[in-house]
Computed example of a mutant assay.
Amino acid sequence: MSVTAAQLYRERRIGERQSGIRRPALVVVDFTYGFTDRDSALGCDAGEAVRETARLLDVARELELPRVFTRIQYTAADERVAAPFLEKMPALAQCRAGSRWAEIDERLAPRPDEPVLAKLFASGFFGTNLAAFLAGEGCDGVVVTGATTSGCVRATVVDALQHGYRAVVPERAVADRAAEPHAAALFDIEAKYGQVVTAAEAGRILRASERKAGE
């Protein structure tokens, strides 16, 4: 009888539970129309994930926890910098600065005090001020939602770990174009980089968080 990947990982103590997060930020990764609109070449079936993210956003706003959005957008000059990425995924070039495809979905419309960080590559940390924002807010972890699970979400979770932050991913608040990479990315995140939880559990993590000193 063959050993499944899950059994093998359990036997080798891969995928253990991390410590709890005391003060999380909600990080909404690339829920722009380029990824939430099925008419886009990059589009996902993201309806449920957007709705679950909106619920978590309501909780974070109610508790005045840090919230931050990322989006991919390119100018002509940026396309030269990101050329290797665009060679792999030419459809990303439609996310032009100022275009509808680079706008955050109106169902999650950022408020004036919620940063929207532009990026050229997959990770929400690479080439942005996300790490500085989290440090300034006194965070020790992140709740990550968005698209795509196997691309920018996974890359952001990996970099969160590498910046010293624990990451939680609500499984129904992330979306991908196909079921197989979505499932594989969630398995990979749970095994090596963060915790995959229900949206309800993510809400409880937000509600149990500590306020920043002075708030």
Rank of each mutant, 00 (worst) to 15 (best):
S2L: 15
S2N: 14
T4K: 12
L8A: 15
L8V: 07
L8N: 14
R12N: 15
R12W: 11
R13V: 14
R13E: 14
G15I: 11
E16R: 15
Q18A: 15
S19C: 10
G20I: 10
R23K: 14
A25V: 10
A25C: 14
L26Y: 03
V27E: 08
V29S: 05
F31H: 05
F35T: 02
D39S: 14
A41D: 15
G43M: 08
C44N: 15
A46M: 04
A49M: 06
R51Y: 13
E52T: 03
A54N: 06
R55T: 08
L56E: 06
V59R: 01
A60V: 03
R61T: 08
E62T: 09
L63R: 09
E64R: 11
P66I: 05
P66S: 10
P66E: 12
V68I: 11
I72G: 04
Y74E: 09
Y74P: 01
A76G: 11
A76M: 13
D78V: 03
E79L: 13
R80C: 12
V81Y: 09
P84Y: 13
K88A: 15
P90H: 09
Q94R: 12
R96D: 08
R100H: 09
R100S: 13
W101H: 01
D105Q: 13
E106K: 07
E106C: 05
R107V: 10
R107L: 13
R107K: 06
A109N: 02
P110M: 03
P112K: 10
E114P: 01
P115I: 04
P115V: 02
L117N: 05
A118R: 06
A118T: 06
S123G: 14
G124N: 02
G124C: 07
F126E: 11
G127E: 08
T128G: 08
A131S: 14
A132R: 09
F133D: 03
A135F: 12
A135G: 12
G136P: 00
G136I: 00
G136R: 03
E137R: 04
C139L: 04
D140A: 05
G141D: 01
V144R: 02
T145E: 01
A147T: 02
A147Q: 01
G151C: 03
C152L: 02
C152G: 05
V153N: 08
V153D: 04
V157A: 05
D159S: 10
Q162S: 15
H163I: 04
G164S: 11
Y165M: 06
R166C: 03
A167P: 04
V168I: 15
V169P: 02
E171P: 02
R172M: 07
A173V: 00
V174S: 01
A175K: 00
R177Y: 06
R177H: 04
A178Q: 14
A179Q: 10
E180N: 13
P181S: 10
P181H: 10
A183D: 09
A183S: 05
L186R: 00
L186G: 00
F187C: 04
F187V: 04
I189D: 00
I189T: 06
E190D: 15
E190A: 08
K192N: 08
Q195S: 13
Q195T: 11
V196L: 00
V196R: 00
T198Q: 05
T198A: 07
T198P: 01
A200T: 14
G203Q: 03
R204M: 08
R204Y: 11
R204E: 09
L206T: 06
L206I: 09
L206S: 09
S209K: 00
E210C: 09
A213M: 12
A213H: 12
A213L: 13
